[in-house]
Computed example of a mutant assay.
Amino acid sequence: MVQAIVAPRQMLVGAGSIARLGALLGQFGFSRPLVVTDRFMVSSGLVERCLAPLREAGMAPVVFHETVPDPTDTVIEAGVAVLRAGDYDVLLGFGGGSPMDTAKAMAILAAAPSGAKMRDFKVPVAADRGALPVICVPTTAGTGSEATRFTVITDTETDEKMLIAGLGALPLAAVVDHDLTFTLPRRITADTGIDSLTHALEAFVSQRANPVSDMYAREAMRLIGPNLRPVYADGGNAAAREAMMLGATLAGLAFSNASVALVHGMSRPIGAHFHVPHGLSNAMLLPAVTRFSLDAALPRYAEAARCMGCAAAGDADQVAGAKLLEELRALNTELEVPTPAAWGIEEARWNGLLPTMAAQAIASGSPGNNPRVPQAEQIMALYAESYRGA
């Protein structure tokens, strides 16, 4: 079988690599960047970590800082208006997954005729054209967006988190510098860390897995599994920060080439309707969905447990699979992941939206990649199970 493998053309990886950002743009012949970020990056001064090397290279970067968590189609439209009004040759996404996803979506929408909407590009449409190349600089170790052909945008008219996929969303290049993650709060460290673990695990068990995505996923799990607790306990642990950052990028490469599965399909509606951070909603669902899926791909889940270090090399698959479930529950406890109920979501509203969330999950296409493909009723049952946790 022929596999189409995608990845950024160049990635600068390692401590201090942000200092080479200006040189990277120059290498590709770019000199007029529009930096896409959020208000916190500007107010905190962190955006200067991005702007300084650009100015040192003789560039005059312009900043669009209207990105919001769970970026919306209206924000994308505002960004495209800024893009079209200026003279730019590259979009630079700086921050967590939201700024990077915003930059990608801006490139896709700006390439479309006037009047087009982001919903015109949701899967199964192939969003393969971008008006400008995108370069990404992640400041969290989690989303992997710096390495993927995906962006996720909320439709403000329907409250649907739309999965948009295609070469138009694939960054040309990325700078992966774990020095940018030392100031992350513990909650964001945990949520983005579980997000990256979910990316690797789902890519590995996906029905679209292939030898290349497997290679990325295995190494991502080997890096993330032993380092998630240490980095949560001590954000200044440089070795753990480095491992988590590299693991997140490898996990991004894995799921970009194999796709995610049921956890992500169910997670996006939670974010859209209840504004739960993406990594946190993944964590809320991961134990229940893994239990549901385990027997359909037991050898794969068992190998994942061994890669993560929660099962021994000699453990039988059934034993390793049980240890994986135990580990995912333990991680949620130790990393203080709340259930939807504990997070404050009203049970009546949660239950009332179950049919809508199940339909939106299925429409995303991700559940179809799961080892055990669920019906809508089974998805609703998993939402109900996850509401208060095991």
Rank of each mutant, 00 (worst) to 15 (best):
E242A: 15
G252K: 04
A233Q: 08
Y232M: 08
V260A: 09
N257H: 02
L262T: 08
Y232P: 08
R241Y: 02
T249E: 14
D234S: 14
M245H: 09
E242F: 12
Y232F: 15
A243Q: 06
V231M: 08
F255K: 05
T249P: 04
G252F: 09
S267R: 05
G247C: 01
A251S: 15
V260L: 15
V231W: 13
A238Y: 00
A258P: 09
V263A: 07
L246K: 02
G236Y: 08
V260Y: 09
S259I: 10
G247D: 06
V263N: 08
Y232A: 14
F255N: 13
M244A: 03
F255Q: 12
L246V: 10
F255E: 14
G235W: 04
M244K: 00
A254G: 11
A233C: 02
V260P: 06
H264P: 07
A261L: 06
M266Q: 12
M244L: 11
G265V: 01
G235V: 08
V260C: 14
S256Q: 12
V231I: 15
L262Y: 06
A239M: 09
A261T: 12
L253F: 09
L253A: 02
N257M: 03
A248Y: 05
H264A: 05
R241C: 08
A238E: 04
A240G: 09
G265K: 08
A254F: 13
R268T: 12
S267D: 06
A258L: 13
M244T: 00
L250P: 02
S256R: 03
G236D: 13
N237C: 05
A243P: 10
S256G: 15
L253S: 07
L262V: 03
A238G: 00
S259M: 15
D234T: 04
L262F: 10
